[in-house]
Simulated assay, not measured.
Amino acid sequence: MSEAAAAAAGHQQYPAGTLYLVATPIGNLADISLRAIHLLGLVDAVACEDTRVSAQLLRWLGLHKPMVALHQHNEQTAAEAVVARLRQGERIAYISDAGTPAVSDPGAVLVAAAQRAGVRVLPLPGASSAITALSAAGDARAQGFRFVGFLPTKAAERRSAVQALGGAAHSQILFEAPHRIEDLLGLLAELVPSQSLTLCRELTKQFETVHTALCSDFPAWLAADKQRERGEFVLVLHAAPPAENTGLPDEALRVLRLLMRELPLKQAVGLASEISGSPRNALYQQALAWKQDADGDDDAAGDDAT
């Protein structure tokens, strides 16, 4: 493996006194790049989020390197020590437990410290759970994407954060832990029920799952199999349907969606307008768009909201 890595990547220059940000696999060890293997064999030390996790990776690669713990609890002080070594001409790689450093993982403080000190920083691209999930979402309507990461854990802040996600014209990438996934899917179903969501679980691992559906459908999907609550989650909230980008408040859309489940279309629109104070015609056009998406009934467009 080391010989193959050297043959593929050895021709490139790897200057001394440089901080190398090295992406590592997010679950499948085979996803590490040949260039990452070659570079990890060259460096003087490996700074890492968890020395126990990184030691296992290095052993699998047949490498033995001095390691420096640099995580969220000591990042500032550890970064200063690493920068001091870089200024003395050492090559040091930084790796997080999985994926690309400094993307919802430690590393940004170290990079900023290196930049302030005039130390060169070079990234080695590789696995990223956020981009992997985005590629599998198939959100062709999206106008770009936004990385959100983990939402707040406090109930009120969490609810406000989910409400703020609604109606966007771009994809939004979220992370969630197993013990909070049920709560998050419940909030998405309540607050942005008509937007599509791609849920990715255990990406690149043996039991990986990629499932796309409306947010309103996910609580039932999750409850159907308790195994679906296990693992690490990346979620892509798809861009809102065009009709939802017309300025109607999220609360009005939520009320309309709930009423449409129980009442005929015109009655649901009328009540939603009275409850929310939103224009009847705008709500009606939104209801038609949802109905057409659901059953393909193009004739509904000829109905009259008045």
Rank of each mutant, 00 (worst) to 15 (best):
S128A: 09
S129T: 10
V119W: 04
A136S: 13
T153S: 13
P125M: 03
F150V: 11
L134C: 03
S135Y: 05
E157W: 00
A130Q: 02
V121Q: 08
R141L: 12
A133H: 07
G118C: 11
G144V: 01
A127Q: 02
R146A: 15
A127K: 05
T132V: 11
I131K: 01
V121M: 10
T132L: 13
G149P: 00
T132F: 05
A130D: 02
F150T: 09
L134M: 05
A137S: 14
D139I: 06
F150K: 08
A156P: 04
R141Q: 14
A155R: 15
P125C: 08
I131C: 02
I131E: 00
I131G: 00
D139V: 05
P123K: 02
G144T: 07
K154R: 15
Q143R: 14
L134H: 04
G138M: 12
G149T: 11
F150A: 10
G138F: 11
I131Y: 05
A136L: 15
T132Y: 03
Q143G: 00
A117F: 14
V119Y: 09
S128G: 07
A142T: 06
D139M: 03
L151H: 02
A155D: 13
P152K: 13
A127L: 06
D139G: 07
Q143L: 10
R141S: 11
T132I: 05
F150Q: 11
G149V: 10
F147I: 07
G138Q: 10
L151G: 03
V121P: 01
A142C: 06
A140T: 09
E157T: 07
V148L: 07
L134A: 03
A155G: 00
F147T: 05
A127T: 05
R146Y: 01
L124H: 01
A117P: 14
R141K: 09
S128N: 11
S129R: 03
S128I: 08
A140S: 12
G149M: 09
G118R: 13
A140K: 09
A133P: 01
S135E: 11
L122A: 10
S129Y: 06
P123T: 08
P123Q: 05
P125R: 04
P125F: 02
T153L: 13
E157P: 00
F145R: 07
A127C: 14
Q143W: 08
A140P: 00
Q143N: 06
A140H: 07
G144H: 09
R120W: 01
F145H: 12
G144K: 08
I131F: 11
G138R: 12
A137E: 06
A127N: 03
F145M: 12
G144P: 00
L122T: 14
G126S: 08
G118Q: 12
G126Q: 02
A142H: 01
V148S: 05
F150C: 12
L124G: 02
V121D: 06
V148A: 06
I131P: 01
A130R: 05
L122E: 13
D139T: 05
R120Q: 15
A133K: 04
V121Y: 02
L151N: 02
A130I: 09
G149F: 07
A117W: 15
V119T: 13
G118W: 10
G138K: 12
F147G: 02
P123R: 07
P152H: 12
A133M: 08
A156T: 11
A127V: 06
E157F: 00
G144M: 12
S129E: 04
K154P: 00
I131D: 00
A156F: 00
A155W: 15
R146L: 15
